[in-house]
Design a protein around this nucleic acid. Sequence first.
DNA 1: TTTCGTATAATTGTATACAATCATACAAGA
DNA 2: TCTTGTATGATTGTATACAATTATACGAAA
Lengths: 243, 243
Amino acid sequence: MNHYDVKQEVTDKYSLRGRVFHKLREDILSGKYEEHEELREVAIGEELGVSRTPVREAFRQLELEGLIQIIPNKGAYVTGITEKDVKDIYMIRSRLEGLCARWATEHITKEQMDEMEENVYLAEFHAAKGQLEQLAELDNRFHDILYEACDSKMLEHQLKDFHQYVLRVRKKTLANVNRGPKSNEEHKKIMEAIKAGNADLAEQLAHQHMINAYENMVKNGLHEAYEQRTGSDGFLRPDTKKS
Amino acid sequence: MNHYDVKQEVTDKYSLRGRVFHKLREDILSGKYEEHEELREVAIGEELGVSRTPVREAFRQLELEGLIQIIPNKGAYVTGITEKDVKDIYMIRSRLEGLCARWATEHITKEQMDEMEENVYLAEFHAAKGQLEQLAELDNRFHDILYEACDSKMLEHQLKDFHQYVLRVRKKTLANVNRGPKSNEEHKKIMEAIKAGNADLAEQLAHQHMINAYENMVKNGLHEAYEQRTGSDGFLRPDTKKS
DNA sequence: TTTCGTATAATTGTATACAATCATACAAGA
DNA sequence: TCTTGTATGATTGTATACAATTATACGAAA
């Protein structure tokens, strides 16, 4: 096995730098830090019990992920996201999710198809019972399945990049009682298109699915959704990675 | 003026770390290092006359840009790109370029429109005279104009991310005598669609433009194009940023 | 000869010291 | 009062020392 064949996380979680990186990312996404808040190297270091070196390296990564902005010789600041940014993100993502659905149609395995079907029908069940928490988790998982099924590490990388932003604005989207079931209905149609091998339709549906999600969010008050830092909700965990 | 309003490069070019970052990026893209070649901190540092600290920070950024891969406690390796990756990149980019053209239709300024027209007609001139070098530069510039005109820092960021990869495989694409003029014809149609305010058509044309570019590349031997590290060509400079 | 273990070297990970830059406070002058 | 220059402290930028980990060489045993 060559070194480059090793399945490698973007950053390891077991070095100090890795831990700092993940901790800061989670804190930023969860709203611990205000937008435009300055992050000081020594303060972060002391809080986590490490020196400045790993903190600085983590900063450089967070900068490229778009979560903070570093101004030379001044400091590191939590990135602000405007409403236009949010809209752009969703529109970009709609294209990529569409492409993802297309490729998923071409590359999905039987196991992935099975899990997707299970996901949709399970979500239908929870929707009927009004269990929004489970519904939200299944929603996240549906998209993860889609990412895996598209079988493109490039596209997956892109979509996960956006995930960083999206998580900051998405918290309340599915909290709306109407969107959850509606979202799942759309998942079902996407799933059926994939199963039928209709890539064009799958792309179109996944594309529209994102746009609907965005429009729903706007309708329900985008502003509060992403301005509010420590909302009383939070049933949607920031990191929805599967185990 | 608030600190976060400052137009800020992703990374500054005047710190040692910034210089290391840009130098390494250029070297990787230009093919100075083999794929999967190991980059050692001290060696790079000595070559550039700096210590390991800025080199390490640059490494972390290059990793997130996808140009190198860092394996904990082992080393940093230049990322390998498979043929499938290349295809994926072009397909993803086709969607994003399409979206970019759509937004450009909605947001382009008069100055940008003028420059785009000038670009196309100038390219027509060079195409007629068979001046491929100028043609290639104008081609790059056309896309830069498009990126600026779309007026979305999010999309611009995404497209520039891909640029890193694309530059590694693109060198020879336009060297083909046929593709240059053909490419410009497509630019012209995109330009006309934007000018006519037809966003749907602009998106569709820009989308197809990318796919054509990819198919042309495949037709002319993708493999050599991106495997070859120190080709005798090189009239297409790796960094095509405007001055 | 091959395999394994150990010693040594090489390399990365982290902490810290020092330099450079920036922010702030305050006083002098207009 | 307002502006401006300077001094001081705070913060980031870089170099270096040391620790931890990994790679390599080499010899002993099977």
